[in-house]
Amino acid sequence: MKTLHIQYFAILREQRGESNETLSTESNDAAALYEDLQKTHGFTLPVDRLRVAINGEFQPWPAPVEDGDELVFIPPVAGG
């Protein structure tokens, strides 16, 4: 089991109802973890519409995770 820290922004924050959480998971990568969370929390965006950042930097899918990592799932951006 790994302990991961997740921060949520924008549509994911609203759908999760929390800005962050710490959880234990057996997922080996961020893509698999997102798909589990999606089932639990009803996230509407499919994983292929997201990017992911681990410990403050973008990572390519499926983005392997290690114990203690900080994850942010990044919905389609819309600055400007």
Binding site: A10, I11, L45, P46, R49, P75, P76
Partner: peptide, 21 residues
């Protein structure tokens, strides 16, 4: 850049831009 925009409409609804499914 990871910035998101939510539009609040005069009609009352709101939506996160680019996040439609």
């Amino acid at each position: 850049v990871p910035i998101w925009k939510k539009e609040h409409y005069v009609a009352g609804a709101s939506a996160w831009i680019n996040c439609a499914t």
